[in-house]
Computed example of a mutant assay.
Amino acid sequence: MTQCQKLRMSGRDKNILWGLMLHFTVAACQSVHHPSNVCAMTGSTVTIPCTFTPLRTCCSPTGPQVKLKVVRVRWCSNHLICHGTTPSVYDSEFKTTDLNRESRYKYLGNKTGDCTLQIRNVEKSDESILRFRMEVNYSVGHFTEPSGVNLKVVESMKLKVTHDGALSPGGSLSLFCSAQSQHCSFQNMEVTWMKDGHTLSEKGPALRINALTAGDSGNYTCALKNVKNTGSAAFSLIMNVDEEDSDNLILTVGVVFGALLALFTLILLFIIFKRKRAAAAHEGHTSVGEETSVKSDHIYSHIVLSDGHKITQTVDDVSYAAILFKHTKQSSSNRGIAGKEEAVVYSSVVCR
């Protein structure tokens, strides 16, 4: 073997080694999560929950890192790699040639992290191992989840209702519609809930009831949506209000009513007191004004002069007034000092 051949072999080995390392690195950085086993009944609708984590970047052996983006997602049946021209039950790039499956298989996910698949009107031929594959804009980043979902299809099943929670007034209760088979449990089924034969709005496998009351009592059943003769046995929910709780409720209502009545009485008394006080103040101002008017109008005057003459003027019979004027003559010796006569006035007022 020549030296050139040795160098070529050495370079080839390096490329193989690099490729293996890159493959395991890519596989470790990507992941797909879904249940391993799913059971469904013919004629029903089953949903397979699925999430995936794609590779964001990848480094090439001869260049810088490449930013990756998912460009294609696929679900295929009974194929290990699910690549190339492998028939798919769903392909984001190409429509399947199986028109029957195309109308019944619906992809509920996207190209960023959700790979949920739904199968309507399940048939016996749908029983298979389903695998999810994502493809990116760089071939090294393509990935197929190897384990897949083992879908089992049965002709009939028996549903049952189980519960979780406290059966007490005001509590919360969850009812679950489930079924068991020899191979796996039935999950993610589209079911219809009924109470005493009346259909409820809830459609999922779980029914949540919050703040339990006596009105929630009844017989609850579940059945597969659009599938006849799949109703479960009834689950009887009985909510009885205890006598003690009833007495406490009556006591509480009585206390609240009494408090409101007392408050209303206090407000009414306060309003009456304010009105009486305002009326009394108004009457006081009125009496004072009338008394002043009477005193100013009802006056009798009786004036007596020093010479004995009397002047009497009658105004009313309530008040009397008498005035006496007396002049005193002064001697001539005092005239120089005073210069005028002094006057003494006596007056008296009588009010009746």
Score class of each variant (00 low, 15 high):
residue 276 K to A: 10
residue 305 L to A: 09
residue 99 L to C: 05
residue 342 E to G: 11
residue 317 D to H: 10
residue 167 L to E: 10
residue 23 H to P: 03
residue 240 N to D: 09
residue 344 V to W: 00
residue 72 R to M: 12
residue 349 V to D: 02
residue 202 E to I: 13
residue 280 A to G: 04
residue 172 S to I: 02
residue 266 L to D: 01
residue 104 R to D: 06
residue 139 S to Y: 14
residue 328 T to R: 05
residue 294 V to G: 02
residue 78 N to Y: 08
residue 129 I to N: 15
residue 182 Q to D: 14
residue 208 R to H: 14
residue 222 C to T: 07
residue 242 D to Q: 09
residue 234 A to V: 13
residue 102 E to S: 04
residue 189 M to D: 03
residue 47 T to Q: 02
residue 32 V to A: 11
residue 75 W to V: 12
residue 327 H to Y: 11
residue 279 A to Q: 15
residue 305 L to R: 08
residue 298 H to V: 15
residue 335 R to T: 15
residue 285 H to L: 11
residue 179 A to Y: 01
residue 330 Q to L: 13
residue 203 K to F: 03
residue 158 K to W: 04
residue 24 F to C: 01
residue 146 P to S: 14
residue 74 R to W: 09
residue 165 G to H: 12
residue 230 T to L: 02
residue 346 Y to E: 01
residue 81 I to A: 14
residue 134 M to E: 08
residue 34 H to Q: 14
residue 134 M to D: 01
residue 54 P to C: 12
residue 200 L to C: 12
residue 59 C to D: 15
residue 296 S to D: 12
residue 179 A to N: 01
residue 252 T to Q: 14
residue 343 A to H: 03
residue 28 A to V: 12
residue 52 F to A: 01
residue 351 C to H: 10
residue 2 T to L: 00
residue 331 S to F: 04
residue 339 G to W: 05
residue 343 A to K: 07
residue 155 E to M: 05
residue 26 V to M: 15
residue 322 A to G: 04
residue 242 D to L: 05
residue 283 E to G: 01
residue 187 Q to N: 11
residue 327 H to D: 14
residue 103 S to D: 01
residue 250 I to A: 03
residue 283 E to V: 13
residue 350 V to E: 07
residue 257 F to K: 11
residue 82 C to G: 10
residue 13 D to P: 03
residue 198 H to D: 00
residue 22 L to W: 03
residue 137 N to C: 02
residue 254 G to H: 03
residue 264 F to G: 11
residue 75 W to R: 08
residue 62 T to G: 06
residue 155 E to P: 08
residue 39 C to T: 05
residue 334 N to L: 13
residue 187 Q to V: 13
residue 143 F to D: 07
residue 313 Q to L: 13
residue 314 T to V: 11
residue 267 I to E: 00
residue 172 S to D: 14
residue 152 K to G: 02
residue 33 H to C: 11
residue 34 H to K: 03
residue 226 N to P: 06
residue 184 C to T: 12
residue 338 A to C: 03
